[in-house]
Design a protein around this nucleic acid. Structure first.
Lengths: 352, 352
DNA sequence: CTGAAAGCGCTAACAG
DNA sequence: CTGTTAGCGCTTTCAG
C-alpha cells in the first residue's frame, strides 16, 4: 500500500496525491476531495522515511539530557515533545548518563537519523563531539551557554542559540526571603561544579549572600551531584559542623529531598529547626511533607523556547535571521519549609 | 557526503562500502580496513532513512504510555530505551495523556515512521486504533493483557504478546505483613477502574484480605486515579470515616505520597498512627520521610521483557515461534511506613 | 492545474 | 569476493 495504490484508486497521478497530502493549494478541489476519500477509505499513511530521503529533512529533533530519572527532565521532555509535535517534529531522546561512551553513541544515533536540530540540555558534553554536530551544520540550542571558550563556530552559518536562564532573580528572592525571616547562617548544597547550570546557581547564591552582607564560611557550601543520595551526604556534613546553618538552599529539588530526609531523620523539625529551599520546583515538591519552598523555572517555557529556537534556525533566511538568545526567568515559590529560625530572638543584636 | 564519496575515496564500489558497514564477513580484510579508514577519516555516517527505505525495516520501536510525568514511566522508558539500543533499535515515545485525540495522533505518528513494533504500556486505548496497528501486522506487546474480549486477532500471524505481572504475590505479602503486625482495619486507595493494571491490583488486594479472613467494608476502598492529588482526597475520605483504617495500601506510589501528605498534615504520625504501603517502588519512595514501604516490580525486567518480546516477534520464523507470554514478579520491600497499629493491644481479643 | 520522469542514499540480487 | 544495477516510496522540476 503506497502512493501508487492511492493514485490508481483515485484515478490521478502520484504527483497529485503527493500534492494533496502536502496541502499544496493549487490542486483542483474536486481532485483533492476524491484523493482524500481514497486516503481515508484505504487508511493510507505516507512513509516518512521516503519523504525524509527525498526532501532531505527528517522532521526530527534530538534532545540530549543527562539522566531521565531526575524528575526534572521528564517534565522538560514532555514540554519539548508537545511543542515539537505542534510544529510538526518528532523527538528523539538521548540519555548520556554522564558517560562519554553513551554520549558518543547518542550523537552517532542522532547523526544517523539525520536530526534537523539538537537541544543540549546537559553540559558535560565533549566539545569534540559537539563539533561533529556543528560541522554538519545542524542547528543547536543550549541551555545557559555553549561550552566555555571552545570555539564551536560552525563553518558558514552559526546555527547555534542559547537559552539563558536568570538564576539570579529566583535565588536572590530566596536568600532575601530567608534573611527577612531572620536567618544569618545559610548553607548551600551545590550541584556538580563541572556542570555549567549548577555552577551558575552557586555563583548566584554567593552573590546574593554577599549583596545582603552575610558571611559565607566555605564549609557552608557543599558540592554534590544533584541526586537525593548525595543531598543526604551534604546535609550530614552541614549538620556535623560546630555551628551548622539554620537554613539551606539547594541546587535542585532532588538534593533538597535528600537533605530534608536526613534532617528529618536526625530529629530536626522542618521548618522549625531548619529551613530548606529547593530549586526547579518539580511537581513532587508540593507533595513532600512539609510542602517544599522552591525556586521555579518554567519547564514549559524552557522546552518551548528550545523548540522555537531550533525551528527558527531551520526556517532562517537572509532577511529573517533567527534570534540567538532567549531568556527565562526564575521565581521563588514559598511553601512550608521556610520559617523563622529557632534561635531567631537570641540572634538579634541590640540595635536591630 | 554519502556512500559514493567513501567508495570513490577508498577506490572500491559502493556495494563494498555497504557490505563493510554492515559487517558482511565475506569482504577481503584488506579492503575492509581501507574502507574503515576512509570512513573514520571522513566521519561518514550512513543515512538511516535510506537504509530503512530499502530494507523495509525502520529499526524503531514505539512505546505508548499515558503520562510521562508519573515517575514510574521515565524509569520504565529508560530501561526500555537501554535495552532497545542494545539490540539496535531506537525508541519513539508516545504520551497519550489519556486523551483519545492524542492517542490517535500518536498512533498516526508511529505508523508514519513505520515502527517495527509497539509496546503498549497503558490501557485506555481505543480498540479501533489498536486494530490499525495490528492490521498492519506490526508486532505488539501489552502489559498485563490485551483489551478484554475485543478481538484483535490480526489477519495472518498473531504478533501480539503479553507480559503478565503477578500482582498477587507482592500484594499478598503486603497484606500479610500488615496483618502480622496486628492490623485488622486495612484500607485500599485504588487506581482508576477502567485501567486494567489498576483493577488487577485491587482484585489482588481483595482476595488477599479475604484469604486472611479480614472484613473489608466497602468504604475502605477508594477509587482514585494514580495521582498524588487524588491520593490526598482518598486519604481524607478514609480519615473522615467513623472507624478509619489503621493501615492503607495504595495502588501506586504517587497515590501513597499523596496519602502520606494528607495524613501527616492531619497530625497523624507515620507509621505510629497509620501504616502505609505503596506500589511500584519508584526511586523516590526511599527518600520520602519516613522511607516508604512499597511493593516492587522491576521496571528493568518489565522494559527488558517488552523489548525482547518485540524483537522475538520480528525475528520470528516457522520453527522459531516467539513466546507470547512472559511473567514478572512483584515483592514487598519493607521500609519504615509500617509498624504495629497504635491500638494494637486493645484490639487483641481473648484467645488471640 | 496535472502528469511524466529524475533522483534522494542505500541494500540486495545477480553477474562476473 | 567484488561490481553493476534495479529499485524502496516519495517530492519536485519540467513540460504539457
Amino acid at each position: 500500500m503506497d502512493i501508487r495504490t492511492v493514485a490508481a484508486e483515485a484515478g490521478v497521478s502520484i504527483a497529485t496525491v503527493s500534492r494533496v497530502m502536502n496541502h499544496v493549494k493549487t490542486v483542483d478541489p474536486k481532485l483533492s476531495k476524491r484523493v482524500w476519500e481514497v486516503v481515508n477509505r484505504l487508511g493510507y499513511v505516507p512513509n516518512t522515511q521516503a519523504r525524509a530521503l527525498v526532501s532531505g529533512r527528517s522532521r526530527l529533533f534530538g534532545v540530549i539530557i543527562s539522566d531521565i530519572t531526575n524528575p526534572f527532565f521528564p517534565e522538560l521532555i514532555q514540554g519539548f515533545e508537545e511543542k515539537a509535535v505542534e510544529v510538526g517534529y518528532e523527538t528523539m531522546i538521548g540519555s548520556t548518563k554522564r558517560d562519554l561512551k553513551q554520549m558518543e553513541l547518542c550523537i552517532q544515533r542522532m547523526l544517523e537519523r539525520k536530526v534537523d536540530g539538537v537541544a543540549v540540555m546537559t553540559f558535560g558534553i565533549e566539545p569534540l563531539l559537539l563539533e561533529r554536530l556543528s560541522l554538519q551544520g545542524i542547528p543547536m540550542v543550549f541551555i545557559d551557554v555553549a561550552p566555555p571558550g571552545h570555539a564551536i563556530t560552525p563553518p558558514p552559518g552559526k546555527a547555534i542559540s542559547t537559552i539563558s536562564i536568570d538564576y539570579e532573580k529566583g535565588i536572590r528572592e530566596g536568600v532575601q526571603h530567608l534573611a527577612v525571616l531572620g536567618h544569618r547562617r545559610i548553607g548551600f548544597l551545590a550541584g556538580p561544579r563541572y556542570l555549567h547550570t549548577a555552577l551558575a546557581r552557586e555563583h548566584a547564591f554567593r552573590r546574593s549572600i554577599q549583596a545582603i552582607g552575610l558571611a559565607l564560611p566555605e564549609e557552608y557550601v557543599f558540592e554534590g551531584d544533584h541526586t537525593a543520595e548525595v543531598g543526604m551526604d551534604g546535609m550530614s556534613a552541614l549538620l556535623a559542623l560546630a555551628d551548622p546553618p539554620t537554613a539551606v538552599m539547594c541546587s535542585n529539588d532532588m538534593t533538597a529531598i535528600g537533605a530534608m530526609h536526613t534532617a528529618l531523620g536526625a530529629g530536626l523539625r522542618i521548618p522549625h529547626d531548619l529551613s530548606v529551599i529547593g530549586f526547579d520546583d518539580i511537581r513532587l515538591a508540593q507533595y513532600m511533607f512539609p510542602p517544599m519552598t522552591s525556586i521555579q523555572m518554567s519547564r514549559r517555557d524552557l522546552a518551548s523556547a528550545a523548540v522555537m529556537a531550533l525551528k527558527a534556525h531551520i526556517d532562517e533566511s537572509e532577511d529573517h535571521p533567527a534570534p540567538s538568545n532567549t531568556g527565562i526567568e526564575t521565581r521563588l515559590v514559598v511553601r512550608q519549609t521556610t520559617s523563622i529560625p529557632r534561635g531567631a530572638l537570641s540572634d538579634l543584636k541590640p540595635g536591630e
